[in-house]
């Protein structure tokens, strides 16, 4: 019988039962195959190619999927993630290591990585600048080093435009 060859999966393409089931799947799960029941995807795809009513149904469901995709989503903020973690995990288990790990590893707060890195760099820079600021002794040592190297006492030289040239 034409058009009713046994389907490899046991269905008969063109069979009303297959078409009804394909319509049901489209009506329930929409047009995207990844949302269809895994074991029935092949059947629906075959029916989609062979039957124009299934193709029409697919087009209608694709339009609905497209419109539904416009609904705004709600992503959890970094503050929410931190709050949940702080409320759940006892304080003794948390520390700066855990906090940094969360900031740098959580995908949904990934945008914090460059911000966190910049903040860390600024803090480090301030610390280095504060703790290792040049002292008078260090300046004198540097001047002596230059003097030894070039045979010239730069500190003794008057400033340009001072009237002593």
């Amino acid at each position: 019988m034409a058009g009713t060859e046994p389907h490899p999966r046991g269905f008969r393409l063109g069979d009303a039962t297959v078409n009804v089931r394909a319509q049901q799947i489209l009506a329930a799960y929409g047009a995207a195959p990844q949302r269809w029941p895994l074991e029935e995807r092949g059947t629906v795809l075959d029916a989609l190619i062979q039957d124009s009513t299934i193709a029409d149904a697919h087009r209608r469901e694709a339009a609905l999927d497209e419109v539904l995709a416009e609904a705004p989503s709600h992503l959890p903020s970094a503050a929410l993630i931190a709050r949940i973690r702080a409320n759940a995990v006892p304080a003794m288990r948390q520390g700066w290591r855990a906090t940094l790990s969360l900031l740098f590893s959580t995908p949904s707060v990934g945008f914090l990585r460059p911000v966190s890195a910049l903040a860390c760099a600024i803090v480090l820079g301030v610390l280095v600048g504060t703790l290792w600021a040049p002292t008078d002794d260090a300046n004198a040592m540097a001047a002596e080093f230059v003097n030894l190297a070039f045979g010239h006492d730069f500190q003794a030289e008057p400033a340009f435009g001072s009237g002593l040239e």
């Binding site: 989503s73 709600h74 992503l75 995990v89 959580t106 995908p107 949904s108 707060v109």
Partner: peptide, 20 residues
Amino acid sequence: GAAFGELLGRHAGAVAGYSY
């Protein structure tokens, strides 16, 4: 706690999105 943080990162979006 680190395992909890990892699960939080993986699934908080789905839970918050569905609830919204």
